[in-house]
Design a protein around this nucleic acid. Structure first.
Length: 645
RNA sequence: GCCGAUGUAGCUCAGUUGGUCAGAGCAGCUGAUUUGUAAUCUGCAGGUCGGGGGUUCGAAUCCCUUCAUCGGCUCCA
């Protein structure tokens, strides 16, 4: 007998060799149907794997990530079996479960798999799943594994195996398909009821652009058709929030191939929105002691040679601009920091002056790869809400922390609750990618990790994501369909102060080196507005909305009164429009609701008589009538509420 | 940059196997209507079917090429 302890602390004795599935069955047959994986002594196991020692057991139902992982991983194997049946000789790379579903990277040889083929693969999967095939686990030696896949002719698998340690290799088989796999898997294909293949894409083998491009097929499965349908509806809804679509609908921004790809054109409404953000942030920055500066859009090539950007990025950037002066070259500004360093250098600094906080809404130009461009989130010309804090080493932590506070404050005002903080460190195996000394890197990385802890930020730590001059704390936010984008970032830099020979006079009357903190909050106006659009579906908070209200006269008879109201509101700094088309009121309401105008002001005979307006709130409907002055103070107090957190 | 897909009026989309296939709705402009809380009616105008080249008696439809977009990969100062 063995003793099995459950998460609630209770324990029971079972026969040795019992599986987690059998344990579940004994608790209740219904539970057995709802579990997909088990954690045994902290390790995730197949449900049908025998338990031979006293163990702690947690059964995973669909709600648990572990269950979904096993479910989708088994689905990937099922898809592989279907592919092998339909495309004999197809070779397999890797096929993991992901956050939503799974994929498999395959090499179909000289055949091509396109989206048109997904349906037939899906059908094959359904056919195989219905056979109720069991997944069986087998431990084998490295030698045997290599023999198996060499014989099969799958060089991708043999490459993976050759890097594994002997004694750790497991194979899983279901039906006619056997795969190298760590597991765990479902007991059988029986629960794989609802299957949908979503897309195909190219993916470099092992993520290396110098290696072969395989075909990646994405899919998702659910134990119930209803869950799959819900997910597909969610995807459809998410598409409606896409900032590229809403940006067009609401006339916020556009692109023109004549201007150039990745070069956003901000239309009047988008510009107003953007300007509202800039005005607000500028005010907040001044409160916090930042000085605003302005620098040119180009800089001499030598500037970027000093900073290191030239060496690092010039080959893949907009190329230097020549001038009539032989040998003279300028670059479109890819970063603001070198310019800010030179502003620092323009005057002498005392330790008493620091920290110096220098901010600029600086537009920069980067030649992003053509395949990377994406709406406003990835563009070739963008405006950073950039700032550089020059401070003494003993001030660095406080400065860093107050920047975190500022970012969290701004995120809170904008209702960005779903962000993650990421500590981005250098790749310890590829140190030549970075500039600067080991000691400075170690110190900066340690500082960031400690500060994040002190601030009680929930962080993930990712190696290899640092900037070439220093480690970062990045604030990541998801877009409508779950893609992660970096918005705010705080970076500690010991290198540029060195390279630009920045100094200050200490109390000892000696020259000292300041530390530089690079930081943005929005990241770039472009990316931030994109995420804001997707977060709000274009229903911007009142304080950001390009127009706060539109006046809707019931008929042309009331246009004069409407014009009078318009004048009062615009004179009170409440940006308002008038819709005096010869349309019925229902039509005017509909059109302006679709434009997500925060307030619609209906005026007709009653309003003229009483000197009022009938107020209608976006998405909520009629709010009754108000005196015009009442509405002005109402709007002002609403805005005040929105930006006071 | 790489793999795959897509590209028809301002927008959303129809256009069977190449042969009145250049269409519809919305938006726009006309005129009528003067309207009370999510679509009033009439008429008109809008497109070298992304660009270029080719196959064919004939191309939106087939082929090549180019540009752009979409989904990923790689990259992201």
């Amino acid at each position: 007998m063995i003793k099995i302890t459950f998460p609630d602390g209770s324990a029971r004795d079972y026969d040795k060799g019992i599986s987690s599935l059998e344990v579940a069955e004994q608790i209740s047959p219904r539970l057995a149907k709802e579990v997909y994986a088990a954690t045994v002594n902290g390790e995730i196991w197949d449900l049908n794997r025998p338990i031979n020692t006293d163990s702690k057991l947690k059964l995973h139902k669909w709600e648990d990530a572990e269950a979904k992982h096993a479910f989708w991983h088994s689905s990937a194997h099922l898809m592989a079996e279907a592919l092998e049946a339909l495309y004999p000789g197809i070779k397999f790379g890797i096929g993991p479960a992901i956050e939503n579903g799974f994929y498999y990277d395959v090499d179909p040889g000289d055949r091509a798999i396109t989206e048109a083929d997904l349906q037939s693969i899906e059908n094959k999967m359904k056919e195989l799943a219905a056979k109720n095939l069991t997944y069986s686990r087998r431990e084998i030696s490295k030698k045997e594994a290599l023999e198996y896949f060499t014989k099969k002719g799958d060089e991708y698998k043999t490459e993976l195996i050759s890097e594994l340690e002997d004694g750790t290799i497991t194979l899983y088989t279901q039906g006619n398909f056997t795969d190298l796999c760590r597991g765990p898997h479902l007991p059988s294909t029986e629960p794989l009821k609802a299957i949908k293949l979503l897309s195909v894409a190219g993916a470099y083998w092992r993520g290396n652009e110098n290696r072969k491009m395989l075909t990646r097929i994405y899919g998702i499965t659910y134990p119930k058709q209803k869950l799959l349908d819900e997910y597909l509806v969610f995807l459809e809804e998410a598409k409606k929030r896409d900032h590229r679509r809403i940006g067009k609908e609401l006339e916020l921004f556009t692109f023109s191939p004549k201007v150039g790809m990745g070069l956003p054109l901000w239309m009047p409404r988008g510009s107003d929105l953007r300007q509202n953000l800039i005005t607000f942030l500028t005010k907040e920055l001044r409160k916090r002691g930042y000085k605003i500066v302005t620098t040119p859009h180009i800089g001499n090539v030598n500037l970027y040679k000093i900073s290191g950007h030239f060496e690092k990025y010039a080959a893949d950037s907009f190329q230097p601009i020549s001038t009539p002066q032989e040998g003279e070259q300028f670059m479109l500004k890819p970063m603001n920091c070198p310019h800010h360093c030179e502003i620092y250098n323009a005057t002498p600094h005392s330790y008493k002056d620091l920290p110096l906080r220098m901010a600029e809404f600086g537009t920069v130009y980067r030649y992003e790869q053509s395949g990377e461009l994406h709406g406003l989130t990835r563009v070739r010309s963008f405006t950073q809400d950039d700032a550089h804090v020059f401070c003494r080493q003993d001030q660095m932590r406080e400065e860093f922390k107050s920047i975190i506070d500022l970012i969290l404050y701004i995120f809170k005002i904008l209702n960005f609750n779903d962000y993650t903080a990421q500590v981005s460190l250098r790749d310890p195996n590829n140190k030549q990618k970075y500039i600067g000394s080991d000691e400075n890197w170690e110190r900066a990385q340690r500082d960031i990790i400690e500060i994040a802890e002190e601030k009680k930020l929930k962080t993930t730590v990712v190696e290899g994501e640092a900037a070439f001059y220093g480690p970062k704390l990045d604030f990541m936010v998801k877009d409508a369909i779950g893609r992660k984008w970096q918005l705010g970032t705080i970076q500690v830099d010991y290198n540029l102060p060195e390279r630009f020979d920045l100094t200050y006079n200490g109390s000892d009357n000696q020259k000292h080196r300041p530390v530089m903190i690079h930081r943005t909050i929005f990241g770039s106006m472009e990316r931030f507005v994109a995420v804001l659009i997707e977060n709000t579906s274009g229903k911007f908070p009142l304080w950001l909305a390009p127009e706060k209200a539109v006046i809707l006269p019931i008929s042309e008879k009331f246009n004069d009164y409407a014009a009078k109201v318009l004048e009062i509101l615009n004179n009170s700094d409440i940006c308002t429009l008038i819709d005096d088309r010869s349309e019925k009121i229902g039509k005017k309401i509909r059109d302006n609701e679709l434009k997500r105008i925060p307030y619609l002001l209906v005026v007709g005979e009653k309003e003229v008589e009483n000197g009022t307006i009938a107020v209608r709130k976006q998405g909520e409907g009629d709010k009754g009538s108000m005196k015009i002055e009442e509405f002005v103070s109402f709007i002002n107090s609403e805005i005040k509420k929105e930006i006071a957190v």
